[in-house]
Amino acid sequence: MSTTPTTTPTTTPTAAPDVAPGADAAPITLVTGASSGIGQSAALEVARGGSGVVLTYRGNPDGAGRTVRQIEEIGGTAVALPLDTARTGTFPAFAEQVARTLQDTWHSAHLTGLVNNAGSSRPAAFADTSEDALDELGDVLFKGPFFLTQALLPLLADGASIVNVSSSSTRPFGMTPGFSAYAAFKGAVVVWSRYLAKELGTRGIRVNTVAPGPTRTRLGGDAFARHPELIAPLAENTALGRIGEGADVGRVIAFLLSEQAGWITGQDIDVSGGYDL
Rank of each mutant, 00 (worst) to 15 (best):
V191S: 15
V271D: 00
I28L: 12
E259I: 09
P13I: 09
P27I: 05
P154H: 02
K198H: 15
R66I: 04
A47P: 02
D132C: 06
D135K: 11
G49E: 06
P5M: 11
I231E: 03
S121T: 02
P233W: 06
S272L: 06
I71M: 08
A93L: 05
G246H: 06
V163L: 07
T29A: 07
E131I: 12
A254C: 11
S35I: 07
G221M: 02
Q97H: 12
S161N: 04
T209H: 09
S120Q: 12
G221I: 03
G201C: 11
Q97T: 12
Q40H: 15
E136F: 03
S258T: 10
D24K: 04
G250H: 02
A15T: 12
S166R: 00
V68E: 04
P172N: 07
F142C: 09
T7I: 06
A25E: 09
G174F: 02
A99E: 03
A26D: 09
G119V: 01
G113R: 02
T112S: 14
A118K: 02
G75M: 08
A261M: 07
D158P: 05
P233L: 11
A151K: 01
A80G: 08
G49Y: 00
K198T: 15
A125C: 09
F185K: 03
P61I: 12
V53N: 06
T67Y: 08
T29H: 05
A124T: 10
A109M: 14
L141Q: 04
S161K: 03
V53D: 02
L219F: 09
R218A: 15
Q260V: 11
S41M: 10
E229F: 07
A16E: 04
D18M: 06
A109T: 07
P17Q: 01
G65Q: 13
D104S: 14
G63E: 10
A235I: 02
S193R: 00
I264F: 10
G250L: 06
T90F: 00
H110C: 13
V79R: 07
E131K: 09
I269R: 01
R216I: 12
N164C: 08
T209C: 15
T88G: 07
V68I: 03
S193E: 05
P228R: 14
V46L: 04
W263K: 08
T10G: 14
T4W: 05
T217M: 03
L200R: 04
V53Y: 04
V252G: 01
K198W: 10
G37E: 00
V98A: 00
R100D: 14
L111T: 08
N116A: 10
Q70H: 12
N60C: 13
V252A: 09
T8W: 05
A160D: 06
V271I: 09
I74S: 13
G144P: 04
D276G: 07
F255R: 02
I231Y: 09
G119C: 02
R251K: 13
R66H: 13
E229T: 13
A118Y: 02
G178P: 13
L152Q: 01
V207I: 06
G65F: 03
G75L: 06
T176A: 13
A43V: 12
T85L: 11
G266D: 00
T202E: 15
M1C: 14
V165R: 00
V115M: 11
G246R: 05
T238P: 06
G220T: 00
A93V: 04
L234F: 13
S121D: 03
A42T: 10
V54Y: 01
D268T: 10
Q260D: 15
D132T: 15
M1N: 08
T77Q: 12
